[in-house]
Design a protein around this nucleic acid. Structure first.
Lengths: 323, 323
DNA sequence: CTGAAAGCGCTTACAG
DNA sequence: CTGAAAGCGCTTACAG
């Protein structure tokens, strides 16, 4: 019922294989034939059948995107944003994407394994870098092509990954605040797990020391309070909103009494005032690079696994101020 | 290289067609044979090839999920949440999902058309119900199966759709506030477009009138202010945060001076105090129903197009108070 | 209850 | 530069 390569071939007066070659714009085919065939395709409204192509070529031309095994992915705008970026970049390269979501690692792994063994996907983009992850183990153990968005805590040389320079992100936060005259700065976090925290904090610490400033590390919890700090570096913007509420209750005003600089530049930074001074981690580029690197991995099968570092940008808004 | 149906057939000493029947658990096959074949599948680690199955059966077993043509889908937790729910429900029915995202209607339509004509998907779940939408027109015009999450402003009888009862949502907001003793209530919105607004506002109005209360409609913008109202019904929780900031600046305190009830129950309602009293619209059920209804549409091809109404739930928190 | 065969719509060596 | 043929791994009438 749908129009096939054969219909086109007949109409154009060529063999089906020729039509196939025209479709992939093979340089072997003469321009005359190409024009003729393309005209026939146009007239018949031909579109190629994805399944037939995949079956015959042995390539799924599809990337699986793996979301973290947590319940609420929707509270972090990051995921929808990178998904969109990945999808749009993939389209540019004429590949599709499939997604894997699950609440537990086991669930997720089952899904990932199924996708790959049914040959639905050529490999994966993994959107998280948890400490020990059975999906990563599985992929690594079976030599399945994948790239990671984030920085794995182990086997960095065996995993192609894309991330920001989190250490530099820590340093730059300090630099900005120091420029504004702050000398007593705390790093505020709600989690001390993961590479993101440790690298940012390390960068923060190094810069504080090298500039001879007074630093502290504060874990945000029920009893959160601050001492003589005049500025804070906060792990992300949602946390910042909570921190600010707390500071308010304690009688501090942002930015008049306390400056805050944070990360992610999500929508949470511009809902209520003061709008947040924040680092934009360039999620779109992270997604684009993930696709590009994955395709590179798949097609050129390089023997090394590199890290791609995506630049970030400081967005100056209202939560930091010179003292 | 991968193990195929033939390998299994040989190992089990049967014909390939028998294996195929065992896979789909056909009632024609004897239990003895089934056991034998399944054992062979296990031992060889067989998984069926998705592309071959799709090609031979003519069914993609995949649903395309269409996101709205707006730039920033990530600022609304709704999308990631429903995507997850859809994906998980789809898995239960052994179907896959593919996604279509684009910044413009044209872009999106191109994608949707391509997905369908390449036979990648059997149809679509459309996640928005804009006024005039060329994607919807295209789907309708070509009799492509699809369901809509939301309520279309036209052709409601030709479109299978899933939504909350927005009118009731408007009514219930009033009822809650009235119970708390509020008699002067404003409906606050930042947009007067779309069915969601008009239905909620209609329900709000009807209930206000029937309870003989004093109502007003306030558009939220730079000059936002309120008069003698003691309570507000606000279109969504992000807007509520902005409204609250404004009220604060004007010297009103929530909930002491003004009660607020809102919609969506997203993360935005519980970041800072007062936590928001809000209606949970049950996004997970919306997603599940979308998949179920789509599959029903596809397999049973009913001659009518029904609306499925998903119940909601009032989440009482801190932003409403008796006066 | 099971088998043999045709066919789904492509791609890709192999020939010429 | 183009064609003829085999094959990708399934499903599904058709027979028996």
């Amino acid at each position: 019922m749908a129009v096939t390569i054969k219909d086109v071939a007949k109409k154009a007066g060529v063999n089906a294989s020729t039509v196939s070659r025209v479709i992939k714009d093979s340089s072997e085919i003469s321009d005359r034939t190409k024009t003729k065939v393309r005209k026939a395709m146009m007239e018949l409204g031909y579109t190629r059948n994805a399944a037939a192509r995949i079956l015959a070529s042995g390539k799924a031309n599809t990337i699986g995107v793996v979301f973290p095994p947590v319940l609420d992915k929707s509270s972090q705008p990051f995921f929808m944003k990178i998904l969109t970026a990945i999808n749009e970049t993939a389209r540019k390269f004429n590949v599709s994407i499939a997604i894997a979501t699950g609440h537990t690692q086991t669930d997720l792994k089952k899904q990932v394994r199924m996708m790959y063994s049914e040959r639905r996907v050529d490999g994966f983009i993994v959107l998280y870098a948890g400490k020990t992850d059975i999906i990563r183990e599985y992929l690594l153990g079976n030599s399945i092509p994948f790239v990671l968005v984030g920085t794995p805590s182990e086997q960095q040389n065996e995993i192609t990954h894309i991330d920001n320079d989190n250490k530099l992100l820590g340093r730059e936060a300090v630099r900005h605040l120091a420029t504004l005259g702050h000398r007593n700065i705390a790093f505020v976090t709600d989690t001390t797990d993961g590479e993101v925290f440790s690298e940012r904090y390390q960068g923060f610490s190094e810069e504080m020391v090298s500039q001879n400033l007074t630093k502290s590390l504060v874990k945000f919890d029920r009893s959160f309070s601050i001492g003589r700090e005049t500025a804070l570096v906060v792990m992300d913007d949602v946390l910042t909103l909570k921190v600010m509420e707390r500071l308010n209750a304690l009688g501090f005003r942002v930015p008049d009494d306390i400056s805050i600089i944070t990360y992610n530049n999500s929508i949470f930074g511009t809902i209520t005032h003061p709008f947040l001074t924040t680092f934009d981690i360039n999620v779109v580029r992270l997604g684009q690079a993930a696709v590009e690197k994955f395709l590179d991995l798949l097609n050129n099968n390089p023997s090394y696994h590199e890290k791609t570092v995506i630049p970030f940008e400081l967005i100056l808004r209202e939560s930091t101020k010179a003292r």
